[in-house]
Design a binder for these strands. Structure first.
Lengths: 159, 159
DNA sequence: CGTGAAATATCATAGCA
DNA sequence: TGCTATGATATTTCACG
């Protein structure tokens, strides 16, 4: 599953799109079942998957875990702006806290946007205390999620 | 893979954690290979997976696609505050734009945080124009991603 | 790119510790 | 919860259009 080249001009055909949809829905579906779904042979499905993996279109097959079941019922979105000279330290701290499940460096006033999942308010407080030594923070608690994380559009071009 | 009950007190044991790690890394790994990795039989691994699926710990097996390969090299994080009386319309619009790959409703001044992937600046402009009819927006462009989206911690409790 | 067929590996279930 | 054994499926490779 190593990316062989940056393919600027690849685009899925109708079959690829359907395969991606099937895998998006359940990445453990068998090749045989996908083959049946699109009326093709298993070997050709296999080749298509290999191709998409090697092109880097498919980054990985993975799990979506339920945070609540694992004891993390709450999520916060935190904007951070590091204090002068603290950038490296802040990046290291962020990478080191497993409850920070995503962090982007952005343009504009706030430098980082982080997504933090937490078990209780005291735990969030503890994490924010650590971060506050290195950055100004602005925290919002997630009340609901109108759009759950989904993949980029992968339907074939019908322009 | 239907969630049977909200299990407040479940927590993975050492074997479960290793299985989750294997699946997190590659959700298409065979049951037999997992069994080998943890020195157990395939049927018992199968049962553990079923249990975690039914408990709702494992939400789904899915794909991680590479946005760039699919023509979406850019990401923006947008904070939105809807205009009076426009909440429902805004939520409908957000759900309808496939380039908005995630959206949370939060406490505080800004009501929504959205993640938008886009192909070009004109496309982002177009999307923001649509949103701007219903809400104030504040947009940041992602420059880099120090922590890529990862799952909640699932190592077994070693307190 | 696609296929069919055959060797190998895997999965699912039943029966039992 | 776990194991072994087994028949049914799935995967993968190959020669070929």
């Amino acid at each position: 599953m190593r990316k062989i080249l940056k393919n600027e001009n690849w685009s899925p055909d109708a079959i690829d799109s359907r395969l991606l949809a099937l895998l998006d829905d359940n990445a453990r579906i068998s090749v045989a079942e996908m083959a049946r779904a699109v009326n093709m042979s298993s070997p050709s499905i296999n080749e298509r998957l290999k191709r998409m993996e090697e092109l880097g279109v498919i980054n990985k097959y993975t799990l979506e875990l339920d945070p609540e079941s694992l004891g993390y019922p709450l999520t916060a979105l935190v904007r951070m702006r590091q204090y002068p000279g603290k950038l490296k330290q802040l990046e290291a701290l962020i990478a080191d806290i497993p409850e920070i499940i995503e962090c982007d460096k952005v343009t504009g006033e706030d430098c980082f946007y982080a997504r933090i999942c937490f078990q209780s308010m005291p735990q969030l407080d503890d994490i924010l205390d650590q971060v506050s030594a290195l950055a100004d923070t602005n925290t919002s608690i997630v009340k609901s999620t109108p759009v759950k994380r989904r993949n980029v559009p992968y339907g074939f071009k019908r322009d």
